[in-house]
């Protein structure tokens, strides 16, 4: 009886996951294979490597370099802002921590298209910041349609994704460890550098991926705040799929490279931190 029950459960279990497995094959794996298929075919469906070789012309290399640079700068700025913020949060009283986390999450619930548009209102030549500058007698600054404005937009949109994982890890650090380090003669600064920082590394890593990946692939932020004066990978990909110059094959090649780039960097980073944090934990 019991045996039949177990076997029945085993069968049921296999059947339970099957809709998901079928779904994954049809709508996760198959679409990715289509990206590869379109990358290596031309409009007639014949095999070609032209789409890939076209990627290595100076024009597209420049777009890739630009995107990586802007996303990198945005990620570094997010980290610099988020780390002390998360640390300050984790030192607050429990009740205040909750409120603070809630306040960080609320902007995430806003429609990003609209908040990005609000930044236009703020940064425009005749916008709110410039009128304020003029009123207090400082000259106006040209901000909109510059790479700087795009970075501001990225930092705004993705900063909470840096703060939240770092905060989560920091708030999980055992209070006793910090007390022990103080007893053993660490001052506040040493405690931060020697105890808190190594232990919060995993949060930093997930924060970095959560900021870098959407930053490098965004297209609406650069369209709105960059004013189309320069192109990022996301803009370029979008223009080949829904824009005026539709070319699925070349667009697929661009996406394939973007995907491979991101997967490789994530794999490298995960590998690096797994061994790193593993060692640290052992040491602690």
């Amino acid at each position: 009886m019991a045996a039949r029950g177990t076997r029945g459960q085993g069968l049921m279990a296999r059947a339970a996951a099957s809709p998901h497995i079928v779904w994954s094959v049809l709508f996760i794996i198959a679409p990715l294979l289509f990206v590869v298929y379109y990358t290596f075919t031309d409009a007639d469906g014949a095999f070609t490597t032209e789409n890939v070789s076209r990627l290595f012309t100076s024009n597209y290399v420049l777009i890739f370099v630009n995107s990586v640079c802007l996303a990198f700068i945005a990620t570094v700025i997010c980290l610099v802002i988020a780390y002390p913020t998360a640390y300050l949060f984790s030192r607050m009283k429990a009740k205040r921590q909750r409120a603070a986390v809630l306040l960080i999450m609320i902007p995430l619930w806003m429609n990003f298209l609209i908040t990005t548009y609000s930044w236009m209102t703020l940064l425009e030549d005749t916008g709110i910041i410039n009128s304020a500058l003029r009123r207090i007698g400082l000259g106006a600054a040209h901000m909109i349609n510059t790479p700087g404005a795009v970075v501001v937009g990225m930092v705004f949109c993705f900063l909470p994704y840096m703060i939240l994982p770092i905060y989560t890890v920091m708030s999980g650090i055992d209070e006793k460890l910090l007390e022990a380090s103080a007893d053993l003669g660490c001052n506040g600064w040493q405690r931060l550098v020697r105890v808190v920082m190594p232990m919060s590394l995993s949060g930093v890593v997930s924060g970095i991926t959560m900021v870098f990946v959407p930053s490098i692939s965004t297209f609406y932020i650069s369209q709105k705040l960059g004013g189309g004066t320069f192109q990022l990978i996301g803009d370029t990909i979008e223009s080949y799929f829904v824009g005026s110059a539709i070319n699925y094959h070349f667009g697929a090649a661009l996406s394939l490279v973007l995907m491979v780039l991101i997967l490789i960097s994530m794999a490298v980073m995960n590998h690096y931190t797994d061994s790193e944090s593993g060692e640290r934990t052992k040491m602690v």
Binding site: H20, S24, F27, I28, I29, A30, P31, L32, F34, V35, Y37, Y38, V213, P214, I216, S217, F219, G234, I237, E238, F241, Y248, G251, A252, S255, L258, M259, I262, L263, M266
Partner: peptide, 21 residues
Amino acid sequence: SVTNIPMMNPDIVTGISLMLL
């Protein structure tokens, strides 16, 4: 691993891969 793909991939890649399908 397959389940996690849409979470790790940039949304734009998920979007265009489905569109191509």
